[in-house]
Amino acid sequence: MLSLILIIIAASFFTGIIIRVKSLASGRKGPGVFQPLKDVSRLFKKGVVYSETTSFVFQIAPTIYFSSVVMAMLVVPFGQSKGIISFNGDFIFFAYVLALGKFFSIISAMDTGSSFEGMGASREALYSMFAEPAFFILMGSLALLTGHTSFQEMFAALHIGSYISYALAILGAFVLMMVAMVENSRMPIDDPKTHLELTMVHEVMILDNSGFDLGLILTAGYLKFALYGALVVNLFIGVFPYQYSIPMFFVIQLVLASGVGLIESFMARFRMSHNAQFIFVLTSVSLLIFFGVLLILGKFA
């Protein structure tokens, strides 16, 4: 329950901070931190335009996409406090529920019959396919390290003790954050502020969405960012009491958001054709974590 509230709060400012940081970095004043929320609430009040090519798939997809993100939020714990549901193997459920949302967002893009949206859909499908193994191996390593298979038990049992485990936690945070970048289509995989449809991934998939549906998709995007941020936070706060862990949560989310903003200000997007390889590299990083866990547990001896 606690995690749900915290994620929603974090989601409300996360994207705003990214935009603010980018503005400051480029020497502008920039909009307020809550501007994204205002944008979304404006969208919720608007009418919609549907393409004549589309079918019911296009109309139900945003709803399902949004619901899948909300469902995934319910599974994520906060340190000692469980998510709303928590069970053995809930991280599998987490990944597959998000996959349902992705499935629908991909086919809804193809529903419009637009070549641009097909392009985005194709990229999204390929990238998310490559990103998932990294997540599963990371979770597998944590399961091996802690002997548990649910998010909450795993994170609660994480004790950062030796140097190797520091390295592992940092690598784990890196993998999770990069997975988040892939899932949210941000730099260095995708540039949400690009002006050419040919070079977009996520943005081009929702070209034809409007009004309430677009609002749902954007909200889901904000939530998704905070969601992955919460997972990263969970890697570090395992045993701390709430009076430390809750401030830590916000500090880490802030650091992550401004990090994303800075990266987007000073880095160029990767070449589209090299993205897949890059994402697959994440899998090898998570394999590295796995070997690290084997080392800690002394399996090689």
Binding site: F44, V49, Y50, S51, E52, G211
Partner: peptide, 14 residues
């Protein structure tokens, strides 16, 4: 939410 909203049907954005 969509009850009284205007729904327009148009071509796909090209």
């Amino acid at each position: 939410a969509m009850q009284n909203r205007k729904v327009v049907v148009n071509t796909t954005w090209g």
